[in-house]
């Protein structure tokens, strides 16, 4: 018994040791270490995903590389080393918060709640929750999911949105948690779950990349409004200002449109499919008036 008490005491001492530190200064850290660490996803198509050579690519990755280029110039670090760190929906926020990654380039919704822990650059994409189902399931709306198995990716805003709806409307859905979007998609594909609520653009990407794209469809009204942004650590005004400056520059020069059409309106790796997803009015508005409003 005594040894466990001493263990608890030791743990507490350890915890007390880790007390709040001063505000972050990511730019200084990057300058001093000559390295920047970028968090990326495995299967957030076409934002941040792995190509056949298992290299992370995508819309968000391109935007982040623009940031890196600007940083090289700003910090006078032509040999700035980029370290790529894979993250999941569950690990991304703790990893930003504990400084393991300097910025996350994936498909992260800027939500007011998350702003308590992390900070976001200006919005670079706008989407919302819809349902991915098999055509053969005949599910057309959320009401059809009463009592059915629904797969959710752990730690996403979509998970929250559907659970809130389920509690409010008393639908009695049965949730299957999953680690990443690819796994969630496979749950629907293999018949474990009837539906997968997720940002519609990611669903389009997953369907596009699947073996039989014709079997699936995206249904339902938008259940949530999800503005995507690059995630950085909280209370770092210098980095936020620098990042927003670069993003706003891309928007003003129209360069972002080129990057957009490269990933959403042209064939993309690994299979060379075209998502054919023209820019929404919401995103056009966000590009005309850059902002970092959370949902």
């Amino acid at each position: 018994m005594k040894r466990f008490v001493s263990l608890i005491v030791a743990l507490t001492a350890c915890a007390a040791f880790i007390s709040p530190a001063s505000a972050a200064d990511t730019l200084k850290k990057i300058k001093d270490s000559g390295t920047i660490t970028i968090g990326h996803r495995d299967a957030s198509i076409p934002f941040s995903y792995l190509d056949d050579k298992q290299k992370p690519i995508g819309y968000s990755m391109d935007l982040c590389m623009k940031l890196v280029d600007a940083m090289k110039a700003e910090l006078k670090l032509p040999n700035l080393k980029v370290v790529l760190n894979p993250v999941t929906s569950q690990t991304r926020i703790p990893l930003i918060a504990n400084g393991s990654i300097d910025m996350e380039c994936g498909s992260t919704t800027n939500s007011v709640e998350r702003q308590k822990q992390v900070s976001f650059l200006n919005t670079t994409f706008i989407t919302g929750t819809k349902l991915l189902v098999k055509k053969s399931s005949h599910v057309k709306s959320y009401k059809d999911l009463k009592g059915k198995a629904v797969v959710v990716t752990n730690g996403t805003t979509n998970e929250r949105a559907i659970k809130e709806l389920d509690a409010k409307e008393n639908l009695g859905m049965k949730f299957i948690p999953s680690k990443d979007h690819a796994e969630s998609f496979l749950s629907v594909d293999s018949g474990r779950a009837v539906a997968f609520p997720m940002d519609d653009i990611l669903l389009a990407g997953l369907i596009n990349n699947s073996k039989n794209p014709g079997e699936f469809e995206i249904v339902g009204a938008f259940l949530s409004h999800d503005p995507y942004a690059i995630m950085i650590s909280k209370d770092d005004p210098a980095f936020k200002k620098f990042g927003d400056g670069v993003i706003n520059g891309l928007m003003k020069s129209g360069e972002i449109n080129k990057i957009y059409s490269k990933w959403f309106e042209s064939p993309i790796p690994p299979k060379g499919n075209n998502l054919k997803f023209p820019m929404s009015d919401g995103l056009k508005e966000a590009i005309a008036h850059p902002n970092d409003k959370g949902a």
Partner: peptide, 19 residues
């Protein structure tokens, strides 16, 4: 890193859903 310890969290209601 600004970590805010909050042990009362265990008695707070779950964000989505019940309990």
């Amino acid at each position: 890193m600004n970590y805010n310890w909050n042990w009362k969290i265990f008695w707070e209601p779950v964000a989505a859903g019940n309990g």
